[in-house]
Design a protein around this nucleic acid. Structure first.
Length: 832
RNA sequence: GGGCGAGUGGCGGAAUUGGUAUACGCGACGGACUUAAAAUCCGUUGCCUGAAUAAGGCUUGAGGGUUCGAGUCCCUCCUCGCCCACCA
C-alpha cells in the first residue's frame, strides 16, 4: 500500500491544475456565478506568513465549495503593489521599486501555488503596472469632472531640518522625531496643498446602507462610528461688551443642559481668538492681548497628539469678553482653551460644568460656577456623578433645578425646537468623517493626472493622455521640499499645457494607494481591457462580490471601496451600489502565548516550512480552518498540524484499504449506518461552510471518518454503498484539503477532478432511524436513557420510561405531579 | 471614559428555538507492533468520594432570579480582549 506523502502528491496536483486550468473562471458561463476573495496582498518581500495562509484559505475554501456545487466560481488574485512600505523596501535593497516588484511577485506565485489556492492566474492584476494605474488615474479624472475632487491648503507639520512634512505621530514634544535634541528647532505648521475626494458628500448614504449589509457586526459598527453622524444645534450667543458687534456660535448635542451654561470656550484656532490676538477685537474694559497671544502660540505649538491627551490638566486664558445666554439672560465669560478642537463643530463650545466632565475640570481650574439642571429619568452620565462627588468633597453648592419630567431625549428635542423658533439657533448635522486626502508626496504611486499651466492654471490631463507614466528614476527618495522625487525628474516634469499648448508642469503628488485598492475587485472581471476601465456588461453580470474577507481595514479601505462603488453606480458603470455582499472580518493568528507574531521576536511561523517539513499544505490548511471559529483569533499550536495530518492519513488509509479489498456486500445494518453517517455529515458540512463555520464542518468530517472505521471493522468490501460513502467523504474534505482529495478521487476510479460539480447532496430519509433515544429525567435530573420506536406516542414513551428500574428508584412512593414530554428528545417526571 | 465582544476540562474549542454540557482535535496515561525509538493502530481521559468500567455528588467567571429544566433568558458584579476617544 502506498503511504500518504504530501511532498509527492501536492506538487503533482498543483502541476496538473495549472495544465488543465481547473480554476480558470469562464466569465461568460451560463452557470450561476460566485466570486469569493480575500483582501489582496501587499507584496513586501518577506513572503507569505501564517496570517496570509489563514486569510486566503478562508476564501479559497468558499470558492472551492461553490465550484463543487456547480457554480462558475471565481477566486481572483492580485497585488496591491504601490505604497510606502514597498518604496522603503526598495530603498533599503538598493533597487528601484519596479525591479523589486519584478522579483518579489514571482516568488509569491510559487508560494500561493504551494498553498493549493485555486486562483485564476489568467486574470491576475497588479496595481503598479501602467495597464492598471491608467484607470486609477481615470477615476481621479472622473472625480474631478464630477466635482468630487478638489485641492485645498491644509496646515501640516514641517521640520526645517528634514525639509519635509511630518505626520502628527512624528511630532514629539513639539520637535521632529529625528531632531529632538536641545538645540533642534521646534516644528512649525506650514500650509500644504493637498488633493481631496469629497467622500463627505456620500456620508449619509454610506451610513444608511450599512444596516442592510451581510457583514461582521463589529465592522458595520466601526463604519457607523467612523462616519460619526450627530444631530445637534448651533447656538448663537451675542457678545455684549466688545468694541464691535459680534457673536459666537457654539455646537452642542445637549441643548437641554444649556440652562446650566456658565462659560464659553473657544479653540485657539477660532477666528475670534485670532482677532483678539491681533488686537482687532477687544473687550470694552480691555483684553490682555499679550496673554492671549502667548497662550495661542503655546497651544498651537503643541502636537495634536499631545493636546488631545485625556486627563491632562486644563489650561486656558480669559478673553475679557462676555456673551449672553438668551435662555436665562445669564452672562457667560469667554475663554480660549486648547482642549477645544478646531476641527469639530464650530470650534467653540458652551461650558456646562454640571453635566460635562471636561467642562467641570475647566471650571475647577478657573473657579467658575457649577450648576446642575437636568436629571434624567434613568439617572445620568458618569461625568455628572463624578462631578457631584468632587463637588461634595470640595463643599460647593449644587444648584439642582429640574427642567421637567421628560427624559433627556425629549427634553433635547423640545429645547432645540424652542431655540430654533426663537431664532437663537440652527439645527445641524455633523460628521466625524472628513474628506479623503488622496495626495501623497512620495514617488511610488500613480501620478495625479493634473498639469499646472502658467496661463490656464490647473488642467486635467485629457483621457487620451492617460496613463501619466511614472518615470523610472535613479533616486526616488523624497525631494526634501515637501514634494516627491518626481519634482527632480525635470524631463518628465516639463509638459505642454493640454489646453493652450504653453509651458506647464506636471503635478508631483501621487495618489494614495487606498484608491488603487478601492476598485480592484471590478478590474478582476476585465483585467486587460485597454479601452475602458472594465466592460460594464460583464461586471453587471458578476457584481457584487459574493464573499469577501480580511483581518484588517475595518474602516478606511472598506469605506473607500463602498464610496467608489457608489460613485461608479452614479456614473452608470455598475448597477449595484454596494461592492461586497458578504464580508467576514476574520481573526488573526497569534503565537502560542497570545502575542502577535513579529520579526523582531523571531517567533514567526513560515507556512512554507510547515509544508516542506512533510505535513503538506492540506494538513496546514485544514488545521488553520479547524483551530477556531473564523472570526476568532487563533493561537498557533505546533501540535495542531500533526493532528490534521493524522486525520488525512486515516482518510488515505481507509481508501487504499478499500481499493485493495474484495468485492462483496455488507450487512443491511452496516449499509444503513454508512448511509446515515455520510448523509448526516454532508448535511452538516454543507450548512456549516455556507454559514462560515468551517471548524465544525471539519469536526463533522472527522467524526464521520471515525464512524466509518467502526463500520469497517464490521463489514468492509467493494460495494456500491462503501464506494458512495467514501466518495462523499472525499468530496466533502476537498475544499479544505484539495490535493489529497483529487488523489483519492482518482483512486476511487474517477477520471476528472473532484473540484468541479461533485458536491454531494443529502437525503433526509437516511437520517431518520427506526428507534430514537429518549432522555428520562426525574425532577430535571437525568436518570435513564431509553430507546423507543421513532413513531411511539407519549403514552408509550411514558410507559417505557416508568418501566425503567432506575427511574422507578426515584419515582416509587412518590406522586408524579407533572410530566413534561418533548417528542424525540426527553421526558421529565416532576415528583414531590 | 464610551462602544462592542468573550469568560466552558490540562489546552484549542462543541452545544439548533431553553431539553443528555464538555462534540471534534491536541496533550496525557495504558496497551499492541518493534531489539529500541519514531510512525501507526487499539483503549482510557471534566472534577470529587470510591478498590471499582458499582454507586453517588459536583461542574460552563462570581452571586441572585425566572423555569419541570439555564452554558443559553433576566438582574447585580468581576476579569480579559478589541475598536474609538478631551468629538462638546
Amino acid at each position: 500500500m502506498t503511504r500518504y506523502n504530501p511532498k509527492e502528491i501536492e506538487p503533482k496536483w498543483q502541476r496538473i491544475w495549472d495544465e488543465t486550468n481547473v480554476y480558470t473562471a469562464n466569465l461568460q458561463s451560463d452557470k450561476p456565478k460566485y466570486i469569493a476573495m480575500s483582501m489582496f496582498n501587499y507584496p513586501s518581500g518577506a513572503g507569505i506568513h501564517i496570517g496570509h495562509a489563514m486569510n486566503y484559505t478562508i476564501s479559497d475554501v468558499k470558492a472551492r465549495f461553490k465550484r463543487q456545487q456547480g457554480y462558475e466560481s471565481y477566486h481572483p488574485v492580485g497585488w496591491d503593489a504601490f505604497g510606502l512600505p514597498a518604496e522603503n523596501y526598495a530603498i533599503k535593497a538598493g533597487v528601484s521599486p519596479q525591479e523589486s516588484m519584478a522579483t518579489i511577485i514571482p516568488g509569491y506565485h510559487r508560494q500561493y501555488k504551494a498553498m493549493g489556492w485555486s486562483n485564476d492566474w489568467e486574470k491576475e492584476i497588479a496595481t503598479h503596472v501602467p495597464e492598471y494605474y491608467k484607470w486609477t488615474q481615470w477615476i481621479f479624472s472622473q472625480m474631478y469632472r464630477n466635482g468630487l475632487a478638489y485641492q485645498d491648503a491644509r496646515m501640516q507639520w514641517w521640520c526645517d531640518k528634514c525639509q519635509t512634512v511630518l505626520a502628527n505621530e512624528q511630532v514629539i514634544d513639539g520637535k521632529c522625531w529625528r531632531h529632538d535634541g536641545p538645540d533642534d528647532p521646534m516644528v512649525e505648521k506650514k500650509e500644504v496643498k493637498q488633493w481631496f475626494f469629497k467622500i463627505t458628500e456620500y456620508a449619509d448614504e454610506l451610513l444608511e446602507a450599512v444596516e442592510g449589509l451581510d457583514w461582521t457586526e463589529s465592522v458595520k459598527l466601526a463604519q457607523k462610528n467612523w462616519i460619526g453622524k450627530k444631530s445637534g444645534i448651533e447656538i448663537s450667543y451675542e457678545i455684549d461688551n466688545a468694541n464691535q458687534k459680534c457673536n459666537v456660535i457654539c455646537f452642542t448635542t445637549r441643548p437641554d443642559t444649556n440652562f446650566g451654561a456658565t462659560f464659553i470656550v473657544l479653540s485657539p484656532e477660532h477666528s475670534l481668538a485670532e482677532h483678539l490676538a491681533n488686537g482687532e477685537l477687544a473687550a470694552n474694559e480691555g483684553s490682555d492681548t499679550d496673554a492671549i497671544k502667548e497662550y495661542i502660540r503655546q497651544a498651537t505649538a503643541k502636537s495634536e497628539v499631545e493636546r488631545q491627551q485625556e486627563g491632562r490638566k486644563k489650561t486656558g486664558v480669559f478673553t475679557g469678553l462676555y456673551a449672553v445666554n438668551q435662555l436665562n439672560q445669564k452672562r457667560l465669560p469667554i475663554y480660549i482653551a486648547d482642549f477645544v478642537l478646531a476641527g469639530f463643530g464650530t470650534g467653540a463650545v458652551v461650558g456646562v460644568p454640571g453635566h460635562d466632565l471636561r467642562d467641570f475640570e475647566f471650571a475647577q481650574v478657573f473657579d467658575l460656577p457649577i450648576e446642575r439642571v437636568v436629571i434624567g429619568k434613568d439617572g445620568d452620565t458618569s461625568a455628572i456623578t463624578k462631578a457631584e462627588q468632587v463637588q461634595e468633597e470640595s463643599g460647593k453648592m449644587i444648584n439642582s433645578e429640574f427642567l421637567n419630567d421628560l427624559d433627556i431625549h425629549d427634553a433635547t428635542k423640545e429645547i432645540m425646537n424652542h431655540l430654533e423658533a426663537e431664532g437663537w439657533g440652527k439645527k445641524v448635522v455633523t460628521y466625524r468623517m472628513r474628506d479623503w486626502s488622496v495626495s501623497r508626496q512620495r514617488y511610488w504611486g500613480a501620478p495625479i493626472p493634473i498639469v499646472n499651466c502658467e496661463k490656464c492654471g490647473q488642467v486635467l490631463v485629457p483621457d487620451e493622455g492617460l496613463p501619466v507614466l511614472l518615470p523610472e528614476l535613479e533616486d526616488f527618495k523624497p525631494s526634501g521640499d515637501g514634494r516627491s522625487a518626481l519634482a527632480r525628474a525635470k524631463d518628465w516634469l516639463a509638459v505642454d499645457c493640454p489646453e493652450c499648448g504653453g509651458k506647464a508642469e506636471r503635478e508631483t503628488d501621487t495618489l494614495d494607494t487606498y484608491i488603487c485598492s478601492s476598485w480592484y475587485m471590478y478590474r478582476y472581471f476585465d483585467p486587460h481591457n485597454q479601452e475602458k476601465i472594465f466592460d460594464s456588461e460583464i461586471v453587471k453580470k458578476w457584481e457584487p462580490i459574493d464573499f469577501y474577507n480580511g483581518a484588517d481595514h475595518a474602516t478606511a479601505h472598506l469605506l473607500y471601496a463602498r464610496f467608489i462603488a457608489r460613485f461608479f453606480n452614479k456614473i452608470g458603470l455598475i448597477s449595484e451600489p454596494e461592492p461586497f455582499k458578504q464580508f467576514l472580518f476574520n481573526g488573526k493568528v497569534t503565537a502560542k502565548d497570545g502575542t502577535m507574531f513579529s520579526k523582531s521576536k523571531g517567533n514567526g511561523v513560515d507556512p512554507l516550512e510547515v509544508i516542506e517539513s512533510g505535513y503538506g499544505a492540506d494538513a496546514l490548511r485544514t488545521y488553520l480552518m479547524f483551530a477556531a471559529p473564523l472570526e476568532m483569533w487563533a493561537r498557533w499550536d505546533p501540535q495542531g498540524v500533526p493532528g490534521t495530518y493524522r486525520f488525512l492519513n486515516r482518510l488515505w488509509n481507509i481508501i487504499y484499504a478499500y481499493t485493495e479489498t474484495e468485492k462483496g456486500a455488507s450487512t443491511q445494518e452496516v449499509e444503513a449506518s454508512l448511509l446515515a453517517a455520510t448523509h448526516k455529515m454532508v448535511k452538516k458540512v454543507t450548512r456549516d461552510i455556507e454559514e462560515n463555520r468551517y471548524n465544525t464542518a471539519i469536526a463533522a468530517i472527522m467524526e464521520c471518518l471515525n464512524e466509518l472505521y467502526k463500520l469497517k471493522a464490521k463489514s468492509f468490501n467493494k460495494s456500491e454503498t462503501w464506494q458512495q460513502a467514501l466518495e462523499r467523504i472525499v468530496a466533502s474534505v476537498a475544499p479544505f484539503a484539495p490535493h489529497i482529495a483529487d488523489e483519492l478521487w482518482l483512486r476511487l476510479g474517477h477520471s476528472s477532478s473532484v473540484h468541479r460539480d461533485t458536491w454531494p447532496k443529502w437525503d433526509e430519509k437516511y437520517l431518520v432511524s427506526d428507534t430514537v433515544n429518549i432522555v428520562v429525567q426525574v425532577n430535571g435530573k437525568v436518570r435513564a436513557n431509553i430507546s423507543v420506536p421513532t413513531d411511539a406516542d407519549q403514552s408509550a414513551v411514558e410507559a417505557a420510561a416508568e418501566a425503567d428500574p432506575k427511574v422507578q428508584e426515584y419515582t416509587q412512593q412518590k406522586e408524579v405531579h407533572k410530566t413534561i414530554y418533548i417528542p424525540q428528545k426527553l421526558i421529565n417526571f416532576v415528583v414531590g
